[in-house]
Nucleic acid binder design. Structure first.
Lengths: 136, 136
DNA sequence: AGCGTTGCGTAATAGTATTACATGTGCCAC
DNA sequence: GTGGCACATGTAATACTATTACGCAACGCT
């Protein structure tokens, strides 16, 4: 199975640059950090970044971390599969661990069904310390 | 069991004003919306709001909705009990439904244990439409 | 009274995101 | 091939969210 079925979507120059910046990064980047890193590539205005991010998030190559106001490249084969994406965000080192979990998806589905709530998008983010940082 | 054990914490004037604004509101409010609503009560600067919010969040009377950059009064008896708080945020009408769920808490705990991730705080937010708005 | 802690007031600034408007570029119908 | 459309881009201005810095006031404690 291919990593990210959507990779056959052709990215524009700006989208590719933003994707590159995020792929090179260890953890999540804010839009303005991305802007700074792409100055040499001709980026001048926040909107150039936000427009690219919008598309990348839409096609699933990038996730937005709501609790950080930042963005991270999807490292993951299964974003399109069943399962709720769960982020573990290490505050000391900035790295993010991304998993998908079917049990969480099922449980949240049961909750929304009970409440007759119609879900568009779901955010699950855990802040804390990764193994290495907690041990260190 | 009392609603919000921490209610016996004495709120300062500013904290009480902010708490009142949030309690009066139907849904979540941004810090700057709160500021505007408290102009007549003497509020002048964002920091007055943020300082009060910080304390109110700390004692559990208010929750921060990360995906909205907004704040909502806790409507809820069981914030101190076991269970993960889950927010359902209705985008059409702005209301938020707040529940706590033990199964979700257990599942997330299992996930973090597997990853040896040490959790400080957890955000679970579902965006979508409430029953009334979805039917309407 | 002296001291520490906490809360408050104000100003300035930093950080995040959007609106508005103009330009460019490729594609397709005609 | 030219007109028109769709989409991507460039730039400026602005709006929205949050924090830092500094000083003063109120309160409790010794």
């Amino acid at each position: 199975m291919a990593h990210h079925a959507q990779l056959d979507v052709k990215l524009t120059k700006n989208q590719a640059l933003v994707m590159g910046a995020l792929s090179d990064a260890d953890g999540a980047l804010s839009a303005y950090t991305i802007l700074d890193r792409l100055r040499d590539d001709g980026f001048r205005a926040p909107l150039q970044v936000y427009r690219a991010l919008e598309k990348l998030v839409e096609i699933g190559l990038v996730h937005r971390l709501e609790s950080l106001n930042a963005f991270v490249a999807c490292r993951h084969d299964e974003c399109q599969d069943q399962g709720q994406t769960v982020f573990m965000i290490c505050e000391p080192c900035g790295k993010t661990i991304e998993i998908t979990d079917e049990a969480t998806a099922k449980r949240l589905k049961a909750i929304t069904k009970d409440a007759a709530f119609s879900v568009e998008s779901t955010t699950v983010e855990l802040r804390g310390s990764c193994k290495e940082c907690a041990e260190g």
